[in-house]
Amino acid sequence: MTADEAPTAPGDGGAGQSKRPPFDTSVANQARIYDYLLGGKDNYEADRAAVDAVLKIAPELGFTARENRAFLGRAVRYLAAHAGIRQFLDIGTGIPTAGNTHQVAQAVAPEARVVYVDYDPVVLAHARALLKSNEAGATEYIDADLRDTGTILDEAGQLLDFTQPVAVTLLMILHVIPDSDDPHALVARLMDALPPGSYLALSHLGAELLDQQKSEGFQNVVRRQAQQQYIGRGREEIERFFDGMDLVAPGVVRVEEWRPDLDRDEEVKSALWCALGRKR
């Protein structure tokens, strides 16, 4: 099955038109799956069953989820502490847990402003209750699909100043966008609206980072139990998201290899590429 033949991502009504996914606890949900992988409590039996089935096939995916969250923290700290970024646009927020973008950024720069974007009703309910800014900064939530870049930019522009650099984070979201929706063009539209000195951080399922047997088994589970398709993309495709940008060292690497806090000597490897780039 090619990416263009894959089932559309949840909420896609075809031709790039999105609609809200139903709240159905009998069907595994991407945000709740990630929550369970991170040890959260905002999940249901269907989510846990899907994760358990996936981990039997590819146990490294539990490590992958945890390392993705750790990458978020390191990237946001770098952006706030070293790059001087004070504005963040976090798209594909997921269910709030410890170490959210605004918490990391505002620990470095209390005046940091963060706009979260998601379209999942499960995420929406938790975000409005839990994503609270400190008094010096600001935090807002936009109810929108990544494919609706116009809405995202219009609403984010009410809090963020697009004449000043903004960091966009797209973690573990682009691999649910099929090629038919042109994810590279979506990212380009977002970055084109931002000034030079803005940044893009992303993580993405790597086509080469799971062997074929594990990849097929994983895809079968998420297609059957979550009614979703994850589209792995190769390293060169990941680099294309950063056209017009300079990659921050070490470039495109697995999430656990991006400026790790500690030296690692683990045999387990993640299945995610990641990178951080600065707009020229």
Rank of each mutant, 00 (worst) to 15 (best):
A207E: 15
R259P: 10
A156Q: 10
A156T: 09
D35P: 12
E67S: 09
G40S: 11
V108Q: 01
E257C: 10
V221H: 02
K56G: 03
E111W: 11
L159K: 03
V252Q: 06
D154V: 11
K132H: 12
T101I: 04
T25D: 03
R240I: 08
L79Q: 02
D211G: 12
V255P: 11
G277C: 09
L153I: 00
I177D: 10
H82W: 04
A98F: 13
E140V: 08
H102K: 02
D12Q: 10
P183W: 11
G39N: 00
L146F: 13
E256Q: 12
S270P: 03
N43R: 12
P110Y: 13
A83W: 13
E5K: 03
A81D: 14
L262F: 14
G94D: 08
P21K: 05
R20P: 07
Y44K: 03
F88Y: 15
I177R: 00
S180C: 07
G244K: 14
I95K: 05
A193S: 13
V27R: 14
L210Q: 09
T8V: 05
R74H: 09
A127W: 05
H102S: 01
P165C: 00
L186K: 02
T163F: 03
A188T: 04
V54H: 04
I91A: 01
R280Q: 12
I142Y: 05
A138P: 05
A226R: 06
Q30C: 07
L38T: 07
D90T: 08
K132T: 09
S215Q: 13
M245I: 01
Q158C: 07
G40N: 11
A65Q: 03
V122P: 04
R128P: 02
S26W: 04
K56P: 06
D192Q: 12
K279N: 03
D192M: 04
D4T: 12
D42I: 04
E216C: 11
D243Y: 03
A31W: 01
G39I: 06
V168G: 06
P178G: 13
F71A: 12
Q212T: 14
A207C: 05
S215V: 04
E155Q: 15
A167Y: 10
I238L: 01
P10G: 05
E236A: 14
R264C: 02
E266Y: 09
L160A: 03
N100S: 14
A49N: 11
V27I: 15
P21A: 09
A15E: 12
L276K: 00
F71Y: 15
H82I: 09
D161H: 13
A271M: 02
G92D: 10
V27C: 07
T139M: 11
I95R: 05
L210P: 10
I173F: 06
A15W: 04
A127Y: 04
L272F: 00
A105L: 06
A70Q: 04
Y36L: 07
Q228S: 15
L160M: 08
A49P: 05
R77I: 08
Q212S: 15
G14I: 09
H82T: 14
I33R: 14
